[in-house]
């Protein structure tokens, strides 16, 4: 099972992140200084790394504005980064001043992006039965208490009825 993260390249506007930041301010939360959004996909099935890379580069990434990172992922959590482009936020990764909220649909909830993704993978000539999942990842910068992160996750980013979020 692979996880693909699509990140906005440096120098391009992360509109969705900016929107979330203004929504966070709207909640009266002030110590979040910046939000970056990236989309997440999980591809599961009898699929090779090379094929996953094709999916990431040819389908999921806009070459002009985005980069991708592929991670091997087991059911529970992500593990090491096994492929990435050079300018992916390395500096940011070691910056302690950010937190992450991931949002995924719960199993059984209709996930239409993943349905389209499966069709598009077939168009790429990858004729394998795969399962896919689409999720969202928000990097929040600033000194933020866990309880505040939970508030942001549940009051803004996810509806816990149908989605689950991981905060870390």
């Amino acid at each position: 099972m692979f996880e693909i993260e699509i990140l906005t390249k440096k120098g391009f506007k992360n509109s969705r992140g900016e929107h979330v930041l203004s929504d966070i301010c709207g909640l009266g939360i002030e110590n979040v200084t910046k939000v970056e959004y990236s989309s997440l996909y999980i591809i599961d099935g009898d699929i090779s790394f090379a094929e996953t890379e094709t999916i990431a580069s040819d389908l999921l990434t806009d070459k002009i504005t985005e980069n991708y990172v592929i991670r091997q992922r087991d059911a529970e959590c992500l593990s090491e980064v096994i492929s990435k482009f050079s300018d992916v936020k390395e500096a940011d990764m070691i910056n302690p001043n950010f937190s992450v909220i991931e949002v995924w649909y719960k199993d059984g909830v209709t996930d239409i992006v993943s349905e389209s993704l499966i069709k598009a993978v077939k168009d790429l000539g990858i004729a394998k039965e795969i399962k896919a999942k689409a999720g969202h990842k928000y990097y929040l910068y600033g000194e933020i208490f866990r309880v505040t992160l939970d508030t942001i996750a549940t009051k803004l980013l996810a509806n816990v009825l149908i989605q689950e979020c991981k905060v870390y």
């Binding site: 649909y105 209709t110 996930d111 239409i112 349905e115 009825l161």
Partner: peptide, 11 residues
């Protein structure tokens, strides 16, 4: 009940 929630697929 959670299952009372629906997500649509307009396409």
């Amino acid at each position: 009940d959670i299952s009372a929630v629906q997500i649509g697929n307009p396409i």
